[in-house]
Amino acid sequence: MRHVLTALCLVLLTSAPPASAQDFPSIGSQYVDFGASMAAVGQMNNVMGAAVRNRRSDRVDSPRAAATTRYRPSPTVSARVRTQFADFIARADPAHSEGLRKFVQQNDLLGAWEQHVAGDGLRRGDVADAMTAYWVQNWQIANKVAFASRAQVQSVRAQVAGALAGSPGFARLGDAARQELAETFMLNFIAQGSAFSDAAARRDAGATRRLSDAAAARFRKDMNLDLRALRLTEAGLIG
């Protein structure tokens, strides 16, 4: 994944109104993810977490039978998720709620996500791609690693796809539920990545440390995983 410390910040902040551009990174300091209460988000994160915990070597597992992780996107679902996200960040930073709401409504955050991850072969419209970007970026932030290679990202994608293929809960999700799940991961990626980028660009060691600790705490609490004990390799995330 491209340099997490600068690229995402530039994609977002160069096109945003000045006040919103300044305020937006503050929402990434939230300990709880946007959409953390969604059953599907927690369930799929735990499915992936179990797959990672069971990997104890660089051995590449045989792929599961192919299962689609794509979905047919709906503008109505995107509008609903965007509004929910705007509500979340407004509550997170009430002093700047109006500017934050405008930022979310006036900027193509999902397009910014796609622009950032395209070099790693990830795309919109796919739950596995959205989860992969979220997991890799949180590993990077927790470990303060600026760069992940395309091969490493794609290896994690194979892990995610395999985990989802073995999940009856995922198989039951329809297009709307898959889209909501994917876009929730994408918006968390944007919020957390821009916050970390902004802190690094300002050389704010305290903020960088807090954001790194928050990423580690999220995964430890929600997925029972120590991101700092995992290695990101060309065979995926390995404990």
Score class of each variant (00 low, 15 high):
residue 82 R to W: 09
residue 199 A to V: 11
residue 178 R to F: 09
residue 13 L to F: 07
residue 204 D to V: 04
residue 137 Q to Y: 15
residue 3 H to S: 08
residue 121 G to V: 04
residue 124 R to P: 08
residue 122 L to T: 06
residue 116 H to P: 02
residue 40 A to I: 00
residue 141 I to K: 11
residue 46 N to V: 01
residue 53 R to Q: 12
residue 67 A to Y: 07
residue 86 A to F: 00
residue 6 T to W: 02
residue 52 V to D: 05
residue 148 A to T: 09
residue 80 R to I: 01
residue 189 F to E: 07
residue 188 N to Q: 10
residue 161 A to M: 08
residue 171 A to C: 01
residue 100 L to V: 03
residue 60 V to A: 13
residue 232 L to F: 09
residue 22 Q to A: 14
residue 151 A to F: 04
residue 235 A to N: 03
residue 22 Q to E: 14
residue 129 D to T: 02
residue 120 D to K: 01
residue 116 H to W: 13
residue 38 M to Y: 09
residue 109 L to N: 00
residue 82 R to V: 05
residue 219 F to D: 00
residue 236 G to E: 02
residue 81 V to L: 02
residue 63 P to I: 04
residue 165 A to T: 10
residue 117 V to L: 06
residue 132 T to G: 07
residue 217 A to K: 10
residue 53 R to H: 12
residue 234 E to L: 04
residue 208 T to V: 15
residue 11 V to G: 03
residue 227 L to F: 00
residue 16 A to E: 03
residue 160 V to P: 05
residue 76 T to P: 00
residue 72 R to S: 13
residue 129 D to A: 10
residue 134 Y to D: 14
residue 99 G to Q: 14
residue 38 M to V: 13
residue 14 T to R: 06
residue 42 G to A: 11
residue 142 A to R: 00
residue 139 W to K: 08
residue 61 D to Q: 12
residue 25 P to C: 05
residue 171 A to R: 12
residue 56 R to N: 14
residue 210 R to W: 15
residue 37 S to A: 14
residue 129 D to W: 12
residue 196 F to R: 00
residue 217 A to F: 10
residue 146 A to G: 14
residue 91 R to L: 12
residue 216 A to K: 10
residue 222 D to W: 01
residue 78 S to L: 14
residue 67 A to V: 12
residue 88 F to V: 01
residue 90 A to K: 09
residue 60 V to G: 03
residue 40 A to L: 08
residue 27 I to H: 03
residue 212 S to V: 00
residue 9 C to L: 02
residue 24 F to W: 14
residue 204 D to Y: 13
residue 166 G to S: 05
residue 225 L to R: 06
residue 211 L to F: 14
residue 81 V to N: 02
residue 127 V to L: 15
residue 136 V to P: 04
residue 122 L to H: 04
residue 17 P to N: 03
residue 189 F to L: 10
residue 52 V to Q: 08
residue 20 S to R: 07
residue 155 S to M: 03
residue 111 G to V: 05
residue 17 P to V: 03
residue 146 A to K: 01
residue 92 A to Y: 13
residue 175 D to S: 15
residue 135 W to L: 06
residue 55 R to N: 09
residue 238 I to K: 03
residue 160 V to R: 04
residue 99 G to H: 14
residue 10 L to H: 10
residue 192 Q to W: 12
residue 10 L to Q: 02
residue 236 G to Q: 01
residue 169 G to Q: 06
residue 115 Q to P: 00
residue 56 R to F: 02
residue 22 Q to G: 09
residue 44 M to K: 10
residue 103 F to P: 03
residue 124 R to L: 11
residue 142 A to P: 09
residue 41 V to P: 05
residue 211 L to D: 07
residue 205 A to I: 15
residue 99 G to R: 12
residue 189 F to R: 07
residue 60 V to E: 15
residue 41 V to G: 05
residue 100 L to I: 08
residue 188 N to E: 15
residue 203 R to I: 00
residue 129 D to K: 03
residue 81 V to T: 13
residue 211 L to N: 06
residue 216 A to V: 02
residue 161 A to V: 04
residue 141 I to P: 03
residue 25 P to Q: 07
residue 38 M to P: 00
residue 22 Q to Y: 09
residue 20 S to P: 04
residue 219 F to W: 14
residue 9 C to M: 02
residue 10 L to M: 05
residue 55 R to E: 07
residue 102 K to D: 11
residue 81 V to R: 04
residue 5 L to S: 08
residue 120 D to F: 09
residue 26 S to Y: 11
residue 76 T to N: 05
residue 44 M to E: 11
residue 210 R to I: 15
residue 22 Q to P: 01
